Amino acid sequence: MGPQTTDVSATAIPATEELRQTVRELCKGFGDEYWRESDQQRSYPQEFVDTLTNSGLLAALIPTEYGGLGYGLTEASIIMEEINRSGGHSAACHAQMYTMGALLRHGSEAQKDTYLPEIAAGRLRLQAFSITEDKAGSDTTSIETGAVRDGDDFVITGHKSWTSRIDESDLAFVLARTSPKDSADRTRGLTLFLVDLRQVRAQQPETLEVVKVRTMFNYATNQVQYHGMRVPASAVIGQVDNGFRYVLDGWNAERILLASEAVGDGYWFTQRATDWANSREVFGRKIGSNQGVQFPIVDAYMKIRAADMMRFEAARLFDVGEPCGAEANMAKHLASEASWDAANAALNTYGGYGFVDQYDIERKFRETRMYQVAPVNNNMIKAFIGTKVLGLPRSY
């Protein structure tokens, strides 16, 4: 099934419904069979990502002066939602959206002039964010991968446990420790680097070791070892030792965008369940007439609608520069829980057919489960809301 390329004008932000229609038309070229085959083969959906890139939509957050669309996070979240709502999987490309903020807000003018036009034109891919480590887990301030200054370079050595799409990327953000951990300010001492992987692969391939990790759904993730990888000092984003703050700055965008993906999944599940319940006949009547089938679908749909509203509120606050940490976290939590309820309602509606790959319920069931644990576990969100919003004692 071939791609359908849709040109998007970079001169103005289209109305919400117009943007939705644009994304839907693009996604029509990549139906259930395309995503099912990609999942079964655990192959990267390169054709889809290329089509999305060529349309300009993957450069949604890049300002127009650099060749992007100049959209806000609200519009970017609609793009991600519609991909998942069509039955696709935004995880193949969402990182280029939520990593963009670190470069836009904290990168130097030279970095932005060098990379943003190339990313917007689709000649460079920024899909890899190398942060998480085995020992540190969610405690990012405890990472051990180090970067040591050596003349005009930094030498990076260490291990990362979840670095997705590094083989599909030309650029990668890498967070490394450049100063000893300070008990008085545990957020200091980490530096964010924008690494040009093309140069590393061409000049020092032995310093970058990538081991693919097979997961329960199609997610191009890897374990990565950095064996004394040299990067120029010009690769530093912002100031040395302040990198954690730049990463933290992008987490709200990440949570909002992934909430929108979960919302898209939720709408997909409820629509598929509704269609099946309206067509499947057992005991001489449509199964949708049974309240035991009908009510779980309705419950899930209402939860998705509520999560959808929180997503838009979080995105609105983000776009006007207002604090939105609580809203971004709540949107991610509510959307991930609602999409999981919708997934279970759809699986129960389909019954045994839901376990058969040709109906795609089991594929999306596996995909949507991720949102409860990544990019942050929902229990961590509850701890954040408890302490930061309600003023309860810290639990960790």
Rank of each mutant, 00 (worst) to 15 (best):
A12I: 13
A15N: 15
E17V: 15
Q21C: 10
L26W: 08
S38F: 00
Q40W: 00
L52M: 14
L52G: 04
G56I: 00
L58T: 12
L58P: 07
Y66S: 10
G68Y: 12
L69R: 15
E75G: 15
E75K: 14
A76W: 11
S77E: 06
S77C: 15
M80E: 13
I83N: 12
S86P: 11
C93L: 14
G101Q: 06
A102N: 04
L103H: 07
R105F: 04
H106F: 11
Y115A: 06
P117T: 08
I119P: 04
G122I: 08
R123K: 14
R123E: 13
R125W: 03
S130V: 02
K135Y: 01
A136Y: 02
T140S: 01
S142M: 01
T145S: 02
V148P: 01
R149C: 08
G151C: 14
D153A: 13
K160Y: 12
S161L: 07
S164I: 05
R165A: 11
D167P: 09
S169I: 06
D170W: 07
L171H: 12
A176G: 08
S179L: 04
K181W: 01
R188A: 00
G189H: 01
Q204G: 05
P205K: 10
V211S: 15
V213P: 09
R214L: 11
R214I: 11
M216K: 06
N218D: 03
N218I: 03
Y219D: 13
A220Q: 10
Q223T: 12
V224A: 03
Y226E: 00
V231P: 04
P232R: 10
A235C: 10
V236K: 05
I237K: 02
N242E: 02
N242F: 00
Y246K: 04
G250E: 11
R255F: 12
L257S: 07
S260A: 15
S260V: 14
E261P: 09
T270L: 03
Q271R: 09
T274C: 03
K286T: 01
K286F: 01
G288T: 01
V293D: 01
Q294R: 02
P296R: 00
D299W: 02
M302A: 06
I304C: 10
R305Q: 07
D308I: 03
E313V: 03
A314M: 05
A315G: 07
V320G: 02
P323S: 01
A328I: 08
N329W: 09
M330C: 09
A331Q: 11
K332P: 05
L334H: 13
A335K: 12
A338T: 03
S339A: 14
W340D: 13
A343P: 05
A346N: 04
T349A: 09
Y353A: 11
V356R: 07
Y359C: 09
Y359R: 05
Y359Q: 04
K364F: 13
T368A: 15
R369G: 14
M370D: 15
Y371N: 15
Y371A: 15
N377I: 08
M380H: 08
I385Y: 09
T387Y: 07
